[in-house]
Amino acid sequence: MRQRLVPYLLVVPSFILIVTLLMGLSSVLGWSLDDGTGSGATFAQYESLVTNASYRRFFTSSLWLAGVATAVALVLGFPAAYYMETKASPRQRKLIFAALLAMFLSDYVLKMFGLVLILGRTGLVNKLLLWLGVTDEPFRLMFNEFGVLVGLISGILPYMILSLNGVIARLDKRLQEAAALLGAAPWQVFLLITVPLCVPGILAGTMLSFLLSLNSFVTPMLLGGGRVDMIAVFIFDQSINLGNLPLGSAAAGILFLISAAAILALTVAGDRFHRRFQR
């Protein structure tokens, strides 16, 4: 009998820790339904988030920016991961891998600061363009959506590439060769053989990148200068700066639901893919 209790005793400490998070999450739910009297519950906060256009903008704009950033990161990351796994020498590969990991582990705030040095009024790009005579006036490359997108993409690229190179490394080369032998053009091989085989990695990388972008706080603050609306900034402003915990909690609740829906959708897509191709 004592033996059978051992595994439960081993997981209890972790459980207690996770329970604090569940308590916190239920507080978020509680606050989001708060009607000010302390006894009743109301959906008024959720309602105003959906109906009030200036609140809704934070969500639509975040979803849009996260979607675009993820798509660009996928398009840029795929060739990099593909090169790394199929064309690079073992030495090169190891070097790229270490560089990616260093990037993955480097400080996000400081990375965004580095981008400010590139995109700012007196930053590298503008200095270069002025020097080349392309323009007389510095371009406005940050404090707008463009700056935020560059920041988001730069932040998620390491995650995207690290999610992709696993599936690419496991690609069965013979399938591509067979397709080429049967007369498929290189772009056909790529679209009809390579990409479908990489779907699990693409889904994982897309999900991770999308959620990370959606959650981004530093990027809209430093590269958007507070002029680009994103959910994380809204939640922080409402709950900390303006002290409106009910509204902040309701926004957090919606963000949680969006994330859960994204995870669920991509998991289902992944399962379908497995059932279809991996019997």
Partner: peptide, 25 residues
Amino acid sequence: ANVFVMAPLFVPEIVMGIAMLLWAN
């Protein structure tokens, strides 16, 4: 148990921040 221990991965970081703030209160 395995899923439960992984739960924090599925909570957006900003939600985790506000949740723990409310928990602390």
